[in-house]
Design a protein around this nucleic acid. Sequence first.
DNA 1: CTGAAAGCGCTTACAG
DNA 2: CTGAAAGCGCTTACAG
Lengths: 342, 342
Amino acid sequence: MAENSSNSSRRPTIYDLAQIAGSSPSAVSAILNGTWKKRRISAATAERVTRIATEQGYAVNLQASLLRRERSHIIGMIVPKYDNRYFGAIAERFETMARARGLFPVITCTQRDPDLEFEAAREMISYQAEALVVTGATDPDRIADFCAAAGVRVINLDLPGRRAPSVVSDNFGGARDLTRLILSRLSQDFGAPSPLWFIGGRPQDHNTLERLRGFHAAHDEAGLTVPPTQVIMPGYSPDKAATALIGRDFPARFGIFVNSTITMEGVVRWLSETLDMDRVRLGCFDWDPFAALLPQNVGMVEQDVSSMLQQVFDAIAEGRDQPTRINVPCILRPLPARVGQP
Amino acid sequence: MAENSSNSSRRPTIYDLAQIAGSSPSAVSAILNGTWKKRRISAATAERVTRIATEQGYAVNLQASLLRRERSHIIGMIVPKYDNRYFGAIAERFETMARARGLFPVITCTQRDPDLEFEAAREMISYQAEALVVTGATDPDRIADFCAAAGVRVINLDLPGRRAPSVVSDNFGGARDLTRLILSRLSQDFGAPSPLWFIGGRPQDHNTLERLRGFHAAHDEAGLTVPPTQVIMPGYSPDKAATALIGRDFPARFGIFVNSTITMEGVVRWLSETLDMDRVRLGCFDWDPFAALLPQNVGMVEQDVSSMLQQVFDAIAEGRDQPTRINVPCILRPLPARVGQP
DNA sequence: CTGAAAGCGCTTACAG
DNA sequence: CTGAAAGCGCTTACAG
């Protein structure tokens, strides 16, 4: 199949097909884009043109097609990274849901770099994207302003902004539930619970602050107060987390709330090189199937990617553009005990 | 900034800008795409037009621009999934390297579905991609044929094809090195080594067969023969791996070669629910930072994503189109002992 | 130093 | 049932 007519290295156009089929470019266009029924073109012609298109390895030129059409049906997404299950799941699910709605998904990854974020957004507007989903952006409002000027709809996902609708996890509730779980497993395994450590994230970061609020709320319920020295926010990277732990004095038995799987990597590596892992119990905000197998891990919070994206697509379909905030509940995943009580 | 002239909801064009600036569309076009120096347009005009473009929130229409230009500079990639570090790293690195070369990367994920793979390839050709990187495809030759007919360059990555240049890991060498490592750690921890289990992948899969060859080669060196019942290839998914282990009889001490991180998930989950994990040592083909923290894991093979992509971009730049095969060495990552000898 | 004009490959009213 | 024609927003030789 796909025999290119050998006379030219150029891709065939509807004019080429029309000439071969003895028909007109208009007819070929209509046949190939499915509007031929309402034009009442003969089935025989349609069949012949379709066959020739296949033989010639024809693929429509979307640049030309989209330039002429009213709508592009392109929907863009920017994500910071592909290096964890959360953003990976978001990207995959976004593509699937977009295709299911007859849209063309275009995703690009912006390395948590504000300038790259902005350039990527501009590029998607240049591609005539009709809507843009801005995920985990460091400066979502700058992008929202630019999109507003270009008449392109924006939705913030994961991190909220002030200029467009935002869909975010219920970070407070998820963190509170996880903190409760770690505290209860601590008392189960070690006796009387003591205040947990909180590691990861940044004090300027919306999600970190919400999670910290939930962390404190669960401690309050349990009549516990967390010493400020036990809240450590050195960013998300494994190395920064490990460095921040150097020289800390941990008690005989203790528990840690880890704020992101990325941070978890550094925390577990450092601890396992430094002390007896039977002394510690951990819980982590965000889900990773391998992290779930670490023996000291008592539970993880999974963000509900499907529900979040459902909200995103609903907001786009309904044409919402007010800076509303939608909170999507998280899923607490307790893990079986994999390590003996001392 | 980005004040849209309120008279219209349409995006501004170079005609709008020309009118506002009191210049011509040609001049505006040249100024905005950087060719104005060689047209010797006055710096004053250039400055004025640039300012107006910013004020109006102008972004070039790439559909129109690309339709007119000779080249698109678009480079496409299809990947099967975003759900593991290997493909995540490939996607991220591909975007970075493409941008560094002045290309526009477009990636889409095809869920290991041959039809989706083909449709995605066709879509990228419709977007005028100049080259297509086909990663981990189930039917790369079908895509290669179609691309050849359309005059689009293709490179296979990860899984080789017969119709286009392929860049793949040295699966044989990586598997042999990993097998050696597991065997040596077995004898270190448990005394005399016994033949390993091999779990994961499919017998029809090129990479699996190469890894199996390396697995056997390392056993041969050690004077060991693997019983056929110890080679289990139920696909890659965690659940299939777990199911395939049901009812197996494992000796008091044993070692496993796990063929992919995805499989590792199922293997470790099942084993840890079933037996004392001190009895087992594992190694895994492919790298994952959390899997590296599992106490029984003695080492992982990391595929050298940067080198592989360097080869891909070289092949594209040089215009290679013969079905050559490039093997890129893997990186063996031994892991520190995290579990006591019995 | 600058503009008018052609044309990239399509789609779609419009006129038969 | 079908085709000629206009035009989407650009770029780029070409002619001043």
